[in-house]
């Protein structure tokens, strides 16, 4: 069993069109690093150069925002699901 990572449509160009990929367990940071080794460039779409999660991206671990679970250091176990959710906003004018 591995960690499942859900990939939103804007990032599927980096995963060959796949909406869900497997990753090795670890911290959220380690999962994202592993993901980047398999799909080069994906971490930079999720995190700033400083390593922090980008303002317009949310990460959910098993339906809870990772910010409430320790952020990038939150542990991700076998069978967990990490979802990458792009923030959707706008308005007029």
């Amino acid at each position: 069993m591995a960690v499942k990572v859900r990939i939103p449509a804007p990032l599927r160009g980096l995963t060959g069109g796949r909406g869900e990929v497997d990753a090795a367990p670890g911290s959220v940071f380690e999962v994202l690093s592993g993901l980047d080794r398999s799909f080069a460039g994906i971490r930079s779409k999720i995190c700033e150069e400083s390593g922090e999660v980008r303002k317009y991206v949310r990460l959910f671990l098993n339906d809870e925002d990772v910010r409430s679970q320790g952020g990038l250091q939150a542990p991700v176990k076998d069978g967990d699901v990490l979802s990458i959710i792009p923030a959707i906003a706008g308005g007029c004018p």
């Binding site: 859900r6 939103p8 909406g19 869900e20 949310r58 959910f60 339906d63 925002d65 979802s83 959710i85 923030a87 959707i88 906003a89 706008g90 308005g91 007029c92 004018p93």
Partner: peptide, 18 residues
């Protein structure tokens, strides 16, 4: 004049759609 779509609604839609 603005909207911020609830990410929890989005998460559930992603799960159920999948």
């Amino acid at each position: 004049d603005r909207y911020d779509l609830d990410p929890l609604d989005q998460l559930r839609a992603e799960e159920e759609a999948g």
